[in-house]
Write a protein that binds this DNA or RNA. Sequence first.
DNA 1: ATGAAAGCGCTAACAG
DNA 2: CTGTTAGCGCTTTCAT
Lengths: 343, 343
Amino acid sequence: MKQRTSINLKELASQLNLSVTTVSRVLNGKAKQYRIKAETEQRVREAANIFHYSPNQFARSLKLDKSETIGVIVPDISNPFFSEIVKNIERESKNRGYAVFIGDSSDNTTQEIALINYFTSRKVDGLIIAPVGLSSSHLNNIYESGMPVVIIDRSFNDVDFPVVTSNNYQGAFDATFELLKNGHTKIALIQGLQNSQPNTDRVMGYVDAMKQWNIPHDKLIIVGNSFSIENGFIQATKLLQAADPPTAIFALSNLITLGVLKAVSDLGLVCPENVSLVSFDEQAYSAFLNTPMTTIEQNREEIGLRAVNYVLDQINGLRLKKGLFLKIDTKIHLRKSIKNLNI
Amino acid sequence: MKQRTSINLKELASQLNLSVTTVSRVLNGKAKQYRIKAETEQRVREAANIFHYSPNQFARSLKLDKSETIGVIVPDISNPFFSEIVKNIERESKNRGYAVFIGDSSDNTTQEIALINYFTSRKVDGLIIAPVGLSSSHLNNIYESGMPVVIIDRSFNDVDFPVVTSNNYQGAFDATFELLKNGHTKIALIQGLQNSQPNTDRVMGYVDAMKQWNIPHDKLIIVGNSFSIENGFIQATKLLQAADPPTAIFALSNLITLGVLKAVSDLGLVCPENVSLVSFDEQAYSAFLNTPMTTIEQNREEIGLRAVNYVLDQINGLRLKKGLFLKIDTKIHLRKSIKNLNI
DNA sequence: ATGAAAGCGCTAACAG
DNA sequence: CTGTTAGCGCTTTCAT
């Protein structure tokens, strides 16, 4: 069952009565540079084809101390938000000659650290990480050790490594503003993981939009503590059963939204008749839900692309300016989940 | 920006005043085998920890002629069906010491072949492929060359390589039978890619269930030709606008279902009042759609796990019996999308 | 109970 | 224009 080891440089060279050096040079496109006879070059190329020569990447990597490989670590690859980013990362990396290792940290910092070490020992040339949580010290360590790193989605304040996220503040502001324009003032926000940077930014967007509309600060309703479906369900159930329920709910993730929808349905309510809804994260199914959902879309293609660009820049020796923190614009999709209270 | 190359065996050995041989043996768990002094073993382990030694995988792979890496190729990593399988493949592989390269073929055979070659030159120890299409010759080639391969999801008739799929026939039979039990006899099937093995099996499940219920063969309605959202939309629109529309639609994929839902909604109809619906593929959102959807769930965890087991078996030299074709049971989720016509 | 040294396949410095 | 050779870091045979 052992993989038949294909022809190697030495064998190829001896077939051609040439030295390995010459063959290597031709195959690495350095024929002109070393003024190798055109005829020789031709012979080498033909032989390589005939014998299906392909270089042993291990030997190459060992020698060159680079693997042309990057590692990608996400908290949950089965979450469509991440899998679409991964898709774009894979495409762009492949186009630029890099293979990608995938790692799933299961929303767990220990796993995340283990994966970083694992990929490091696999000598990846760079790392793209959507970090799990609240602590960044292990990320600083790895970045300072000289490993090219780009952080996506979530980040931290005052970090050195480059970050690519959505403009979470603006997205949340837009969503809240849309509700306000439609006459809602009693707007509940169901948030995700507290103190995580995207959550903080989104909450700020909500707060500022409310402030700008002159909603008194004590009328803000901010509940919840996780980006999960359960959190959405629990919080929405509480909110909607209250004596004086909100007219609108702004859910800070696609999963929270699914939980909210279940609560709405379980309570025998209908959206948007009984309660209006806006959700962070556009999904393929957003338009097909019971009441097509108004959403804030994050640009997953752009996030993936930029991340690859920034790792490869670092790999190629470019120094990125300190504190690079790219915030990519979000886009609002207006659908029917908001009731207009002005009419 | 160059990666500070971490400590290597030689350096570690010299720190310890030991030979590289001894250190290597300890670190590879061969201490007893070579009767290395317990104290020495202890010292080595401690030093390895202190200096954060991690072996250079290239050197290792070059020497051992194996990479402890597998390649996974799927048609679309952003499709939750595949991303969940990938999640399970990654987890199991990691647990067994293998890293996984991810490749997205974009539903394109040329890309699939390119990825196979790419991963081969990267010297992966094995390959798990969810093939794109209808042709299997390139897969036979690679398998016969001695590369451990497992095919998942889609397959082909009369192939040598091992295959792990769902029991598509049974799933489709169950779905159809459920509709029949609820009094439906005019059931339209919107199929996916024709002549692909899962599609064929599912169609057969539908046909056999109808036959068993004594529905005349000319009352079967089979339309469509792709697992896509567009196909679902187009076919459902046609079906529902016909003079004598079906009372139920069975959609052979989650994407087809989204298309059907859009058609239903665009035509001002409601499910299940105007038309009942059953869908292949359970999704996180299935329960939250406009009318919670009755679905046939494929066991993505089991598929991923088995696939990993079978590649690793091959890598470890086990000969799998020819024509191994594992069909994993599906599970029906009964929800509200079927109207009972018997009452 | 431990070490010396060969060699995996490749690149590049040095040598013509 | 082409070749010889050292060496990347590791495992393992052979020696002691």
